[in-house]
Nucleic acid binder design. Structure first.
Lengths: 225, 225
DNA sequence: TAGTTATTCTATAGAACTATGGAATAATGG
DNA sequence: CCATTATTCCATAGTTCTATAGAATAACTA
């Protein structure tokens, strides 16, 4: 094998490191979750319904490929994406899948149809209606994800507190719920439950990583209320 | 397993189809070659030093992932990238590898150092010097890649004809050679050989896909001479 | 210091992927 | 219609990857 081939093999092997890292659905799910902000192995395992061991192992793969980095915080370790490029990689792969595979649309539409929650808002319409004050925007992700970054003006309203706190919500305005992004089920379920209780509720398909990618402003920190 | 998980698994599985397609160095090499233009299995096998069977099999993977499409031309089949997004995917992964892995740079520099061909031109400098007419630009890829798209004004000068046609080249101008892109060895070897014969020769790191991605004009068809 | 918690490491079995060579297929040319 | 050319299909053996459960580690806490 000549030096040319050794060189080419070495180069393509480097590129393939990234490919292998994103070749497994569970690791893609972890990247998706990490786009929402830094977090622990335990939280990732819980949110992705994986065992802690398996989650840790997948995170090692991602770390070996330099897609995530880790730093200790007390006894725990905080995992985070290496930089914005990692989140863009995930978004770009997701976009390509939407572009190439009709299945992506079909799967989502079937899921939404089952929950009578097909109505989905886009960001432009939302901004317009936010200005008119006839909507209230709920961030239905867990609080720590809200704290790591949220739509300015959105109220933290985690899905698992929705039933208890429903009395807080106005019945004369449209309730818009968002979560992690177009394939996250939290906002879909929130809209479904709210509709069943007589609210005007829709979900917003995009999430913080999408807005960040578009250069829109993102608020950080706790719920101001 | 609830319907949420079924849904999530289905979505991430779709995205992972792309990941798996780009998880193997040989398939990345095929994508790189296909960025130069449509071609046959046999040509891809030759250029990548793979067996035809193995090449065909990898192309099936890429086709299953919708990254390439195929159409018959006589007895042969012409493979091509599905669309520009596929080439951008490859370029984006290559860019991330450059971004994340110092090895990429180290590997390339070591290879170039061995051939005393470290000097590399960028596109801006090239355009400037092209205007001043003190350079001649050679496209050292195989003719069919030149025909599929080349820098306007570049002369088709395939590497394997270089020694025979060297007399055609001017000794009072700088000879700039380009090929498929930053990790293609053709231009490196061309510059090396030309220097050994006393020419002022440098390589241009970028290639047609890079210029196309930047929106620069690309000429098509045969060599006008 | 001992116990607790969070995480990684290790071993293993099973699944998925890859390379190879030869047979099968399909279109073309004489 | 046969031979040729180009490619895919198939079976196989070898390799790599994944999930799992339990042991090991390392940092806090009482």
């Amino acid at each position: 094998m000549g030096p040319d081939r050794v060189f080419k093999d070495a180069i393509y092997e480097q590129i393939a490191r990234i490919g292998r890292a994103v070749a497994h659905p569970r690791r893609l799910e972890l990247l998706d979750l990490l786009c929402q902000g830094p977090t622990t192995v335990e939280a990732l395992a819980r949110k992705s319904a994986m065992s802690v061991g398996s989650t840790s192992q997948h995170l090692q793969h991602l770390k070996d490929a330099h897609l995530v980095r880790v730093e200790p915080r007390g006894a725990a370790r905080i995992y985070r994406l290496t930089d914005a490029a990692t989140c863009e990689l995930f978004r770009s792969l997701r976009g390509l899948a939407e572009h190439y595979y009709a299945d992506m649309r079909a799967i989502t539409e079937a899921f939404l149809r089952d929950r009578e929650a097909l109505e989905t808002l886009d960001v432009a319409t939302l901004q317009q209606r936010m200005d008119q004050e006839d909507v209230i925007l709920l961030d239905v992700r867990p609080v720590e994800e809200y704290a790591a970054g949220h739509w300015p003006g959105a109220v933290s309203f985690p899905l698992d507190t929705l039933t208890d706190r429903m009395a807080e919500l106005p019945r004369d305005r449209t309730v818009v719920a968002y979560c992690r992004g177009p394939y996250c089920v939290l906002a879909m379920h929130a809209a479904e439950v709210l509709r069943q209780h007589g609210f005007r509720a829709v979900r917003l398909a995009d999430g913080v990583p999408d807005w960040r990618s578009q250069g829109l402003p993102i608020a950080k920190g706790g719920d101001p209320r």
